[in-house]
Design a protein around this nucleic acid. Sequence first.
DNA 1: CTACGGATTTTCT
DNA 2: GAAAATCCGTAGT
Length: 203
Amino acid sequence: MKKLSRDFYNRDTITVAQELLGKYLVHKVDGEELAGKIVEVEAYKGPLDKAAHSYNNRRTSRNEVMYGEAGYAYVFIIYGMYDCMNVVTTEKERPEAVLIRALEPVKGIDKMAANRFGKELTELNKREYKNLTNGPGKLGKAMKITRALNGEDLLGDRLYITEGHVEKLEIVTSKRIGIDYAEEAIDFPWRFYIKDNKFVSKI
DNA sequence: CTACGGATTTTCT
DNA sequence: GAAAATCCGTAGT
């Protein structure tokens, strides 16, 4: 399927976040594709967003990628253990991004089972299957997306996002998750997910 | 199914 | 030195 263009990413962050739902995130590992449908995202709008790493234009070696061109991956470690992937949006020097919060496994699911639990796909119980990719840290582990991919060009051939299938999506809007420190930004309605999808992290 | 507390280490102050 | 865009196991409903 067709890769999303630079122009897709180089737009308003909320729009990109909403339109990423239903698209396919692909990571090629050892010549094999791992892929998942994007079912949950959150927008982080830089300077005016206390929940964002780039709040008040804070610029560090960690978040430098957010200041670059749209269509690159921003991968960071959270709580010392988990890799989270974002898609950089808008033009240069405008540090905004979309966090990929959950995927529905599509391709290479057996590899995801191995990456997540060190088990065969058939050995997973119901809870483990559901937990393959239903959270930002979980999908990072399942898809083998690590800090090494920070700054990766999403128009390249290793990590990219493609058009989805034609389907009608019902999108739910809500507050973001895990940002209790962010004061007024706690209530910003910048989380979007596909209604009734089983791999959404939290209703 | 939900709720709670602990784990663990990078990052910034 | 403290906080952090989270996850997991266990216990309970």
